[in-house]
Write a protein that binds this DNA or RNA. Structure first.
Lengths: 335, 335
DNA sequence: TTGTAGGCGTTATCAA
DNA sequence: TTGATAACGCCTACAA
């Protein structure tokens, strides 16, 4: 049997309620404090979270809901969330919904049933009412990666617009005038932002935006593969291409390899997200790198703040900067 | 306020204990059964796991302890574990210990404090007493990826020996006689097995095992990089190399690219673990693929069995087969 | 088959 | 500051 408050009470000769008070930060005579601490040490006492939870209806548990556990971008964010929360005694229940909206709802219900104290969510598009549901239950919530329109909520974003802007700008500076983009789904927030950055920088530099150079994929490997080939078949093909997520970057690279397209001679290339990838591919890829650690830590810290009932600054919208790694996949074009 | 058994009792006019009995699979009059089910539906009743847990000292929670959350091999196993457990109402607390033995112990303690009902562990070498600790507490435990000597425990393994055997055999069949291996740490079980398979197949085919062609790395990218270059500098370099985990495969590929080594002309290559990688690299890589889904599902199912107090077949040692994908990275050597 | 009553380990209220 | 006591929601003898 595990030791309980009762045991501590016996050991110290104090009452249960005094021990409980001490445990929750109340004032206790110096002498008693020492006594209690000694008892806790020697008896190896740990509060029973379930009993406590039953009384306080707090579970010291938070749910993290992400689209997939087979995606390094997501899991490495989770990893950083988890280590922050753990320090405060919270355990993290990770659920993925395999990119399936139906599952998203189911898993959320699961988390509700488990009575998590808070939730970190990376929402799929179109499921905005899920977010509303969470908020309606007053469960503290931090969103990651995208905002929901007309809903006030703490959110950690990446500055996708400027990420694109800076990436494409480097291509322009190096003389490229026809630049293709493999963008994401039009209903996904991050995809919209990344596309906006592309368009804006072209406009800022007085270049025309050619719709035939804008391809919308679904963020999966296959569409990266197909769209890259489509781009190469355009009447006047681009001299450079910018791919806006990890999976499509992989797909594009596969297409490039299988079709003997040369980087950067046939096409200059900027990809997204994964540093290892950048080095594996030859020549070394230029990529936009997202600050996964910061994303995770920021989300966790905001959630902890809310868990403490601190509503300061609500809603906190954090926008983190990406990093642009320029490697050997970009060619200078003579003008 | 959430609805409780009490509410169901009121709604149905039955007593709390009858409801409870029903909930736990006891016999109830057909008429009452329907009544209760109706009440549960309309009042949207969910048992309070904390109250139940307080009584039964079960948390309906299992802990999964893996070396890292930034490794697709691990996280995709976790993903499959999680979806099986979820169906049975268990939530999964994932902890990673960032490849740090100190953390491993800490996180385990965390799981104990959270009173998880069971644990799935992928243990680091040398921390065998952790496993013993878990067993001593009688917490159901399933090991993944490696066994512990002199300890009886359910475990899900991959047939690493034959994985290596088959991979290297393909190289031999294609005429290779000097085959290098980038093996893992000598104290890691899987690494030992993979090396054994390499040695055995060489012996079976009457080839001599040349120690200068066996390099031990630490399963990290960097060592894959270094060791591949070392192998190429051996007096009589190998014509083929077999790399025994994902990270070192990446490292090797980077080294190959940066040094303009050609696959398969300069060297034939078989890597490990990641299917995407195989396609990204040009030419397409041959690789050993581990059955991540089976690993996860098997582990989860065994754990569930134990959670049900079913000790049948203890200890269950499952050994799963790998798959060998042969692609374009292997050259036929004329003899 | 159903109901009564006690207790799981904690927190919170109120007196002392 | 401390202590007695009543919940929190559920399960489980035991009695009816």
């Amino acid at each position: 049997m595990a030791t309980t408050i009762k045991d501590i009470a016996k050991y110290t000769g104090l009452s249960i309620s005094t021990i409980s008070k001490y445990l929750n930060g109340g004032n206790v005579l110096e002498h008693n404090r020492e006594l209690i601490e000694e008892a806790i040490q020697t008896l190896d006492f740990k509060v029973n979270e379930m009993a406590r939870g039953l009384r306080t209806s707090r579970t010291m548990t938070v749910g993290v809901l992400i689209p997939s556990l087979e995606n390094i971008f997501f899991t490495s964010i989770v990893s950083h969330i988890e280590s922050i929360l753990l320090k405060e005694g919270y355990s993290t229940i990770v659920c993925d919904f395999k990119e399936d909206p139906g599952l998203e709802e189911k898993k959320l219900q699961f988390l509700f049933d488990k009575m998590v104290d808070g939730i970190v969510l990376m929402p799929l598009p179109g499921n905005d009412n899920l977010v509303k549901k969470i908020i309606a239950r007053k469960t503290p919530l931090v969103l990651i990666d995208r905002m929901i329109n007309n809903v006030e909520c703490d959110v950690v974003l990446v500055d996708n617009l400027n990420a694109s802007y800076n990436a494409v700008e480097q291509l322009i500076i190096r003389g490229h005038r026809r630049i293709g983009i493999i963008a994401g789904p039009q209903n996904i927030y991050t995809a919209q932002e990344r596309l906006k950055g592309y368009i804006r920088v072209l406009e800022d530099y007085g270049l025309k935006v050619d719709p035939s150079l804008i391809k919308h994929g679904d963020y999966q490997i296959e569409s990266g593969y197909n769209l890259l080939l489509e781009l190469m078949k355009v009447e006047q093909p681009p001299t450079a291409v910018y791919v806006t997520n990890y999976e499509m970057t992989i797909g594009s690279i596969i297409a490039i390899n299988e079709n003997n397209i040369r980087i950067p001679d046939d096409i200059s290339f900027i990809g997204f997200d994964n540093q290892d990838l950048a080095r594996i591919v030859k020549p070394a890829l230029s990529i936009v790198v997202q600050p996964v650690q910061q994303i995770g830590e920021t989300a966790a810290k905001i959630l902890l703040k809310r868990l403490r009932k601190d509503q300061g600054g609500f809603p906190i919208v954090t926008r983190l900067k990406t990093e642009l790694l320029i490697r050997d996949s970009i060619k200078n074009v003579e003008s």
